[in-house]
Design a protein around this nucleic acid. Sequence first.
DNA 1: GCCAACGTTGGC
DNA 2: GCCAACGTTGGC
Length: 154
Amino acid sequence: MPQYWLMKSEPDDCSIDDALAAPGATVPWTGVRGWQARNYMAKQMQVDDGVLFYHSSCPQPGIVGIARVASGTRPDPTQFDPESPYYDPASKPEHPRWLLLDVQALRKTRLLGLPEMRATPELADMVVLRRGNRLSITPVDPVHWHFIVDRMLA
DNA sequence: GCCAACGTTGGC
DNA sequence: GCCAACGTTGGC
């Protein structure tokens, strides 16, 4: 059974348009620096899982596209790059601490903005809407996934 | 730029 | 293994 996820990206860094314009519409999901999100990637996420592409830290936060998990995990090279904002001097190449996986954008949708998500009773229980939620990757209940996909593609 | 609410760390 | 303090996320 596929699982479903919501992945936050800052559009200044990688927007849905950037992802769609990448070769194969596929981007390495760099910069995850939290253990919970890291462990979702390492232990639960599988190729072909569904992904809601979410823009955060921007004027109009919300879901902007549909994507899929396109690879297993490998070490995130930005952790070893002193020039990168994601550099982690404590992580050694022989024991990489942070992982990434590839995400393939499938299509852009209309904006399902955060205010609309909050105003939609069917979505009230989404993990990402929990107060103060800070995880960059959150699991999405299949019921929520189907509701959103149906609504966005209708 | 502010700041609430959090996830993570580290002392014990 | 608890939990207070810290640093960060992310919406506004």
